[in-house]
Design a binder for these strands. Sequence first.
RNA 1: GGCGAAGUAGCUCAGUUGGCUAGAGCACACGGUUCAUACCCGUGGUGUCGAGGGUUCGAAUCCCCCCUUCGCUACCA
Length: 657
Amino acid sequence: MSKPKYYITTAIAYTSGKPHIGNSYEIVLADSIARFKRQEGYDVFFQTGTDEHGQKIELKAEEAGVTPKEFVDNVSTTIKGLWDLMDTSYDKFIRTTDEDHEKQVQKIFKKLYDKGDIYKGAYEGMYCTPCESFWTESQLVDGKCPDCGREVKPAKEEAYFFKMSKYADRLIQYINEHPEFIQPVSRKNEMMNNFLLPGLQDLCVSRTSFKWGIPVDFDSRHVVYVWLDALTNYITGIGYDCNGGSTDQFKALWPADLHLIGKDIIRFHTIYWPIFLMALDLPLPKQVFGHPWLLQGDGKMSKSKGNVIYADDLVTFFGVDAVRYFVLHEMPFENDGVISWELMVERMNSDLANTLGNLVNRTISMSNKYFNGIVTDKGAAEAVDDDLKTVVTGTKAKVQGKMKDLKVADALTEIFVLFKRCNKYIDETEPWVLAKDEAKQDRLATVLYNLVDCIMTGASLIEPYMPATANKIAEQLNTTLREFDDLEKSGLYPQGNKVTEKPEILFARLDAKEVLEKAEALFAERKAEADKAAGITETVEEEINIEAKPEIEYGDFDKLQFQVGEIISCEEVKKSKKLLCSQVKVGSQMKQIVSGIKQHYSAEEMVGKKVMVLVNLKPATLAGIVSEGMLLCAEDAEGNLALVTPEKSMPAGAEIC
RNA sequence: GGCGAAGUAGCUCAGUUGGCUAGAGCACACGGUUCAUACCCGUGGUGUCGAGGGUUCGAAUCCCCCCUUCGCUACCA
C-alpha cells in the first residue's frame, strides 16, 4: 500500500533583501508541519524558494550597482543558506528565475490570453510623472502622490487584464462550501467583505514600466505581473505543463494540501491564485493558512536603528533548536507573537534548560551512578508508574489533535507536559532514597528504565520541532528515535542497554543581563555600519534629478508669497495616516496648515519649529480640515522629507524672497 | 468612512452551547528535596473578567451603548 501524499509549500521569499526573523519564522513553521506529516506516515513534498522579479528588485540592483540577476543570485543564496541553517527539510527550492519556470509562465500567459481570460485593455489611474508610478484613487493622499506629495494626473497605459469577475461567483461558492480553505477563519471574512461580495475588479496582469520580469512572449513590451509569475511556482515547481505535458510528480501531488503564507498575502492566495487555477481547469489547494507575525517587542525593527534581528544572530546566541523552539512556541495561531531577548532567555532557561535538558541530564547521571549506565526493567512496578505511562503514551494523540488544526505552539506545550510529568515522577519515586536501600535495587532499576523509556517517547515526539535535539537525546541514550505508531506504547527501550557515560548539556542556562549586553553591542555595531553606509550613499547619491519644468518669468515667481512661520501647536489628523494639522504663526496672523508629513515628524517635535510657508495658496480642505497654506519640504530619493527652515534665527512672519 | 477582531492575575494567554468558591504557564513568596544545568516537586496570594446599562434564579459568557487597541480596505512585492 502506497503512502498518502502531502504537498506543503511556503510562500517564496521576495529577494529584495535578507529576511529578518519575522520572515524566517514561516520556513520553520512549515518544516515542523512537514516533518510531523512524514512522521505520521505521509509521503511529504515540501517546496519553498525565492520570488525574484519586480520593480523593487530592479531598483535595488541599480542602487547596488549590479545587474538584477546578480542581485537576486546573491540574495537567493543568502536565503537558502538561512533555510539550511535553520535545519529545514525542504524537498525543492524553486527560483522564479529558473528557466523552466519562466517558460511555463509564458505558456500559461499565452494560454489564458488565447482562452480570452486575459485581454488587452488600458490601465487607467492617476499618474505621478516624477515617480513614474500609477496610483489608485484610494491610494492618493489628499489627491496627491502618496510618495512625493506632488500633483498627479489621469493617465492611461496599455496593459493586459485578467477577467477576475468571470470566476468570482464560483470562488464565493467554493469558499462557502469549504470552511477550512482559509485559515484562520477571521481572514475569510475579510476577503469576502472587502473583495468578493462588493464585486471583484479585473486584475492588471502585465507591466510596461519596468523590465525585470518574465516577458510576455507575444508582446515584448510587457512583462508578466509578478504575482501571476510568483504564484504559479506552486505548480511549475512540481512539473506542471499547461499544454498537457505535466509530469507524473505533478499528477501525484496537485492539488497542494497546504499553502503556508504570511497574513499579508492572503488576498493573493485566496482570491487571485484560486481564480488562476480555475482558469487553467486545475483543482484548488485544500488549505491556505495565513500565519501571524513575530514582532519585536521593543519598538519596530529598522535597519537604520540597527536593531533588526536575523535568524542567524539568534542561532549564534542560542543555537538552532532553541530558536526553532522559541519561534514555534511564541507564535499563537491567530494573533501576532512578540520576540525579545528577555523572552528568548526566559524560554531557554525555563523550558529548554530546566525542564528538558536537566531531565535528560539527571536521568543519565543516575543511571551511571547506580548501574554503570545499564538500563534494565526488573519488573518492580508500582502504582505511580501507571499514571506516568498514561500521560506519556497519551501525548501522541494530543499532539496529533493539535497539529491537525495547525496549532503548532499547542502541540509543543503538550510535549512539555510529558517532560514535566517525568520530572515529577523522579520526585515521587525518590531514586536517591531507593539507592540507599539494598532491598530496593530492582525498584530503582525499574524507575530509571521507565524514565529512559518515557524520555525516548518525548524525544521522538519533539523531532519535528527540534530535530537535532531529538537525535542528540537518542544518541545519549544510545538508541534511535521511535516510529510514530510506537509512541503510544511503553517498554520499548532495549533491556540492558547502556547510556552514555558523559551526558552533554543539551541547553546551557543563560544570564539575561549578559545576553542583553551582547545584543546591544551587536546592535550598536550594526547601527554604526548603517550610519556609515548612509553617509556614503549620501555623498554618492547627492545628485537627485527631477523632471525639469518650463522656464518661468520673474513675475511668476513674484506671485508666490513665502514667509517664516512658527509652529505654535500641532496635532495628528485622526483617520489619516499621513496628515498633521499645525497652527502656524505668520506675523500677527495664525494659519491652520495641514501637511502630509506624519511619517517623518511627530506632532510634538513639530511644535516650536520655524518653517518656510507658502502663505498665499488658495485654502483647500484636506480630510475635512481647512488648510490655509503649505509647509515646504525637501525630499530625497527615498521620499524622506525634511522641513525647510531659515539658516539663522528669524522672526515669524519674515518674508522669504 | 466601511467591514472585522480583541480588551480576563505583574507578563503571555485558556475559558466550549450562560451554572457550583474564574483557570494554566512564566514571574513572585514560602515549604520540601538533593540525582541533576542553584535544578526539581509542593503550597500560596492578588483579578472592579475595558466602562456603563439591560435580560436572567444566575453572565467573563447573551443584548444595547461607550472607550481603547489591532487587522483588512485591491494592481508595491
